[in-house]
Every structure is written in C-alpha cells, then in structure tokens.
Design a protein around this nucleic acid. Structure first.
Length: 644
RNA sequence: GCCGUUGUAGCUCAGGGGUAGAGCACUUCCUUGGUAAGGAAGAGGUCGUGAGUUCAAUUCUCAUCAACGGCUCCA
C-alpha cells in the first residue's frame, strides 16, 4: 500500500495512506480541528472533506472561519431547506440553491401551493430537526441517463433543464436524509454542523434571471454553527437598519417624498439643502482649482438633439416620455452631456483651448423602473456632480489620471475606504443594440483605459457588458447599509458623441480633429452621495457638512437674552445652529440635541452669562468645559476645516 | 415592469363590521431646573385612493396608487 505526500499550509509535509480522506488527516493533526472541518481544499479545488485523496497534494482544511467553509455550510443549508420544503410542500420543484454573500437561497416552483413568511417558523424548526439527525451528505456519481430518469420520474423539469447542459459522466448527486439533489458540491460532512437557521426573505425571481420566463419563488435564509452567531447577525442587521439613510433622512429631516410630487422625486428639506450647499461649495472650489469652468444648461431639449446624441436610439426607455410643443417633441434631460457638447460646438476651438473642462451640477431626470427606486440612492430626479472634459488623444492619459486623482482625493476627504473599482467594458455581441456600433473604437479606447489603470497601479476588476453606450468606463462600487450595491463615482470615455455632434478643434497643422470626451462624476449625484454619506457616517456628518452645527441650550428662560447675543455672534461668524428656547430642563434639551446628532451643544446659564462664555458639550457626551465666545469661534473654525 | 408584504395622527405603532387608540412630537399653563426624557391640560386622523358587498366598512372583496423585500434593469 503506497503513501501520499500531503503538504499543509504551513509548509509541513506529512505522509498518509493513499485514499485517506481530509477528515482522517484532520483527525491525525488534532481532534478539535477534525470536529470543525467543513470542507477541504485540495490544490485549488474545494472538495468534500470525506472524499479520499489519491495523490500527493497541497491540503487546506477549511472551517467556518474560512470564506469557502462558510459558503459550503450555507450551500448545505440550502439542501436542508429543500428537504424541509419537500416535507411541507410535496411536489415542490427545485431550480438552484446556491450560497450568497449572507446566507443562501433556493429558487423553487411550489406548483400553486401558497408559502408565506408565516410558514418560516415551521420550516426553520423542521430544518433544525433535520440537522439534528446528523445525516451524512453522501456524494454519488451517476450516469447522465440515470439522472435524467430520476428527475423525469420526479417530474422536475427544472433539474432536467440543468442536466441538459451537463456533460455525460460528470453527474453528481448528493443525498442527505430523505433528500437527493443534483449538485456539484462540495458539502459539509454531515448536517449536525448547522445549529441555527433563519429564513430571511421571500421573493419572486425569474427563472434563469430572464424576465420573459416564469417567476419562481426564492426563499432566502442564513445558517450558523452556533446559536450565538445567529443572534449576533440579527443584532448586526438591526444596527444596519439604524444607519439606513431612509430612516436617518426622516429622523434628521433631510429629505422626504410625497405622493403628489411623485415616486423617486425627493424633496430636500432645509437640512438636506444645507448639506447640498456645502457639498457644492466644496466641489466647486476643488474643481476650479483643477481647471474646470462652469456652464449652465436648460432641463429640456428637443428630440433632434437626443437623436444625435444616441440617447433616443440606445436609451429611450430610461427617459421620461416627450412633451409636444409647437410641433416639436421635447425631452427632459437624462444627462448633461449633449447640452455641454452644444456649448463646445458654439464657438470654434483650437488645440490651445484643450483640455476644456465644463462642469455643471445640472438636474437630470431618468425614468427608473418603479421597482428600482430606493430612497435617495435610486431616484428619478438627480443632480450629478457632472463635468465633461474635451481633450486630444495625447492629453487623454493625463486627463483621465487627473480625474482618478480627483475622486481618490474626495474619497480621502470622506474617509471612503470600502469600495471596488470596476473597469466596465462592452459586450461585442450587443453592438448596435446596447452599444454604439464601432468595434474598432471600443477596442482602442478600452485599451487606452486599461493602460492608464495599469500605469496608475490601481486595484480594479474588469467586467464585461457594463459600459456606457458611448464608451468604456471606470465605476466605483459601494454598498448601502443594507448591502445593496451602487455605483458611486464614475469616469467614462466617450469616443462616439464627438463624431455624432461633429465636434472639432483645429490642431497645430491647421487640420480639423475630433476631441476625445471624458464624462466624470466623482461625487456621483447629490442624491446618491448624500444618501451614502448618511449611512457612511451613521448620520453623524462631519462638522463642515452638518446642517445644524450647534444647538444653543439655555439653562432656563432667564438666559434667553444672553443666548440671543451668542446666537448673533455665531450667525455672524457663519456658524449654523439651532436655538432651543423651550421651557424645558437642560437634561431634556441635551437629550433632544443628542437624538438629532448635533455635533456641539452650547449650554448657557448664569455662569456663562456672567463670564461671556458657553459651556461646550460634544455629541456623544464629551464635555469641553467653559470657553470664551471668541475662543469657541476660533476652536470651531479649526474643527470645521475640511481635512485633506 | 414582475413576484411577495405593507399602507391607521408629524413620527413609531396597537386595534377592529356599528363612524378610532397609545407613546413621542406639537400648543398652552405650571415649573426656572446645570449635561440623555419635570408635571398638567389641549389640539391633531373621515384609518392611502376608488368602487363593490352590507341596514352599516376604516375593518370584508376587487381595482388602483405608494412604500418595503427580492428579481429584472441601471448612462
């Protein structure tokens, strides 16, 4: 009997009998480890820990602490959920049940049976009962014909559909307890690892993600190897909900929606408008320093412009339908670029004028599908932090780099660290439908962008079929408090519209040449960015952005006169705040200011009035003691500086 | 747009076939109190909208609108 060499992650090499399983190897290392092994990585392949190993291999034993361990446990949980579903809903048909970032789901066809969230409890209980049975996940390889027979007998057309795309001889089944599923695996050794489960959501999901197909029922859940971890997870969800910008926006009176105004059309309350003012002020200053000039354009334009720009052929669905006037159709603008191109075209341009950078925070209107609307993050009226850069090909790299630098600078200011940079490319199969039909230009510009990214040494991922219709782009992806993904900043190349608008400049050789265009929105839209910031800061905006920077809290009515003096001085010093002149006790006033997340509470009573002071308490409770009025103003000014 | 859930006072929510309730917020009065809720009184809603069933609907049915969770979409 021969032996195999197993190399462990620490580099040590051990000898085992050929055909040993990962579990047996784990046991030889330590019983404790063996008890926690969920799945094993052999070379680069994740496999069942109970599978025999027949040749020399690098072996990593994966537990709940490894991402792959977690997702395997969740995948196995999906199978157990399926078993429970089959118990309560006989005849249920299964599509796929994969693990996801936070748990797992299974798409099922209940065949007309009703499942509601009220049923979750009994399904969870059944799952735990099944888990406690300590059933093995048994892997079996079978011929394709046999698999087809199995699901034909069962009448499960979904699994049969899956089988069609599988190669013969590669069919694996997993069985645990009374449930057998077509599955590539791997799975955890047995069901007993699952100690806590929670079904989290019930939703419709199109079969194969295609909206023309039948809608299946998707059941989301999550599972843990310890009850306490489920409790922690639920607690974390609660915390995330507290950060939700929709909740904070209401509590802090930042924005609202109204049925009469319309869905996706936010109304900015004074606090929200104040944040926008500060944000714009900051961005305008920063962009002026970076060589941008500001332009202004109307909210509507005629059909002819959007035919020219390509919006109507490629994009009409996302625009509000037109208004007819004097025999012309007018559209609400969905983007500022065509207007800006017209400004570029308004006067003759020389190479000496380039690069030319037009900036405008113009309000745009997009007809987002009703089901897509999400607080401030996905709306139908939006103010982009927009600008268009017109440059020569030679200037492109420098300009593109400058734009990247700009948003990295912004991200530093706001402490944005968790994001993914995405290089979004076109899908050649969709030229002429989703994308402008210029294959060679796509290839050329994508190569240009890749080159810049590589020269900048940035971390990024490349994704197919995510480009703008007019060119490739860089997107910065972020996540909302409840885990939805959004594009924040964007930096796009446009090789198409210059030609469509016949934009030219005169080069050194006195020839007409087309500029390249960069579309960029480093601060996204006011709506999405402020929504994001609210969640990012959990409502505690940095001082310079805070709409209410202080709350002035007199100890009693006796000090109202002095309070007014203080208020005047602060207003004069351009420090914004509120004045709580109610006949309430100071404890109450402090509590209310804390709830409103006001950064500074200024308490004035007899002592302060006598000494021309304010007592300063920071949000959260830190007591800075008494400060002379002038001292407070200079302290505050220092604190309110934007730190770059 | 599709599937599911929800829709009662400014906010958070309870209730339920016989024309509505709590806490907070708000107003007034009392209190003038030093670092996270002082007391009392009052005002405030035809229960998202429309239709149907009924002697009677906010409560049941249907439609519609909106929000929420997903899916699809996303310049």
């Amino acid at each position: 009997m021969s032996e195999i060499k197993i190399t462990l992650p620490d580099g040590s090499v051990r000898l085992y009998a050929r055909g040993s399983t990962s579990l047996e190897i784990a046991k030889s290392i330590s019983e404790g480890l063996a008890r926690n092994v969920l799945v094993a990585k052999i070379g680069s392949e994740v496999r069942d820990a109970s599978q025999p190993i027949n040749e020399d291999a690098n072996l990593t034993l994966l537990t709940w602490n490894d991402g792959e361990g977690k997702s395997t446990l969740w995948h196995s949980s999906a199978h157990i959920m399926a078993e429970a579903l089959e118990f309560y809903f006989p005849g249920v048909k299964f599509w796929v049940g994969p693990p996801v970032d936070n748990g797992f789901y299974y798409d099922v066809d209940l065949g007309g049976q009703n499942l509601s969230t009220d049923d979750f409890k009994k399904i969870e209980d059944k799952m735990l009962e099944l888990a406690r049975q300590n059933n093995l996940f048994q892997r079996k390889e079978i011929p394709k014909q046999e698999a087809i027979q199995y699901f034909t007998d069962k009448g499960d057309e979904y699994k049969l559909d899956l089988l069609q795309n599988l190669e013969d001889g590669n069919i694996t089944f997993y069985t645990q307890g009374n449930f057998t599923d077509l599955c590539r695996g791997p799975h955890i050794p047995n069901t007993s690892f699952i100690k806590a489960v929670k079904l989290t959501a019930l939703a419709g999901a199109y079969w194969k993600g295609d909206e023309r197909n039948k809608q299946l029922t998707r059941i989301y859940g999550i599972a843990f190897p310890k009850k306490s971890e489920l409790d922690e997870y639920l607690l974390m969800l609660e915390e995330a909900k507290k950060r939700d910008h929709r909740k904070l926006g209401k509590e802090l009176e930042i924005f609202t929606f109204d049925d009469d105004v319309g869905p996706g059309l936010p109304l900015w309350l004074p606090n929200g408008a104040a944040i926008i003012e500060r944000l714009e002020e900051f961005a305008k200053k920063t962009e002026a320093e970076a060589g941008y000039v500001r332009v202004r354009t109307p909210h509507i334009a005629k059909e002819s412009m959007y035919l020219k720009s390509g919006h109507l052929p490629y994009y009409a669905e996302s625009m509000f339908p037109p208004m007819e006037m004097d025999g012309d159709k007018y559209y609400l603008k969905a983007m500022n670029c065509p207007h800006h191109h017209k400004i570029f075209a308004a006067t003759p341009k020389s190479y000496r004028d380039l690069p030319l950078r037009y900036a405008e925070y113009g309000m745009c209107y997009r007809y987002e599908q009703s089901g897509e609307l999400f607080g401030l993050m996905r709306v139908r009226s939006l103010s982009m932090n927009d600008a268009h850069i017109y440059c020569t090909e030679a200037q492109f790299e420098e300009e593109f780099k400058n734009v990247n630098d700009l948003y990295l600078k912004y991200f530093k200011v706001f402490g944005i660290e968790k994001y993914v940079m995405r290089f979004s490319k076109h899908d050649p199969k969709k030229l002429g439908q989703k994308y402008i039909d210029s294959p060679e230009l796509w290839i050329k510009t994508e190569e240009m962008v890749r080159k810049v990214l590589q020269n900048l040494n940035l971390n990024y991922i490349e994704v197919e079929d995510e480009a703008a219709f007019y060119g490739p782009k860089i997107d910065i992806q972020i996540w909302s408090a409840i885990g939805k993904e959004f594009t924040l900043a964007t930096n796009q190349v446009d090789f198409a519209q210059a030609e469509r608008f016949d934009l030219t400049f005169t080069n050194e050789k006195n020839q007409k040449e087309r500029p390249l265009i960069i579309h960029r929105a480093p601060l996204s839209t006011h709506e999405r960015f402020i929504g994001f910031l609210l969640e990012h800061y959990a409502g505690n905006l940095p001082l310079w952005l805070s709409p209410t920077q202080f709350a002035l809290l007199p100890i009693s009515d006796k000090y109202l006169d002095y309070s007014k003096k203080v208020l005047e001085l602060l207003n004069f010093s351009d420090i914004r705040g509120s004045f709580d002149n109610r006949s309430e006790k100071i404890g109450k006033k402090i509590r209310d200011a804390e709830m409103k997340k006001v950064p500074y509470m200024l308490i004035v009573g007899e002592q302060e009035a006598n000494e021309e002071c304010v007592s300063v308490r920071k949000h959260g409770g830190e007591d800075l003691g008494k400060m002379k009025l002038d001292d407070f103003v200079s302290y505050f000014k220092e604190q309110a500086k934007i730190k770059i």
